[in-house]
Design a protein around this nucleic acid. Structure first.
Lengths: 83, 83
DNA sequence: TTGGTATATCGGGAAAAGTCGATATATTTG
DNA sequence: CAAATATATCGACTTTTCCCGATATACCAA
């Protein structure tokens, strides 16, 4: 999912009909591509969010998720320095 | 354990009596510090080895493990580029 | 307000990972 | 070769993670 969200336009073309890519990709799109149930994907995304790897933005009935690139940069640096 | 192996002289002082630090630290040293059973530590180290994060060198009845810094560098870069 | 849609949360069963004791293997020493 | 030591592997049990269906919540539209 994290890799998918790196190129939303390529991986979630039908997101265009759901408000575009400004705020990210909504859960249903990710769920369809993942082939997992709605509850599983929702929980997974919320875990990634709490971990800081993605950001959520609620717009109406939709929740859009997009990557937080800073977190990946930080993780990469953490592995370099601390691990 | 990976962090411990970053500074073997500091974290495993009694390794001096077991052949020094050239080849790494032997399992018993790590086990004592970890507070886990011998079998658990042995298995854990072998997993880390198969994953490429540490290298093993058998010398007589001892197995010495040391970090493979290249693997950490590679992981850090992988997170930067692919993830 | 009622029904429809999108997402979140909850509880439980299945799968995987962690940990142990027992035992096997390899090596050294007498 | 026999005993001692260091490590590895095996089988079982426990804990954690994964994933699901059911249900709750939030929002929208008629």
């Amino acid at each position: 999912m994290l890799e998918w969200l790196k190129e939303p336009e390529i991986n979630f073309p039908s997101q265009l009909e759901h408000g575009g890519f400004e705020h990210g990709v909504c859960v249903g799109q990710i769920q369809a591509k993942a082939g997992l149930t709605q509850s599983t994907v929702s929980e997974y995304l919320s875990i990634l969010q709490r971990a800081g790897f993605i950001e959520a933005k609620r717009v109406g009935q939709w929740t859009y998720y997009k990557r937080n690139e800073g977190a990946f940069e930080a993780l990469s640096k953490l592995i370099q320095s601390n691990l």
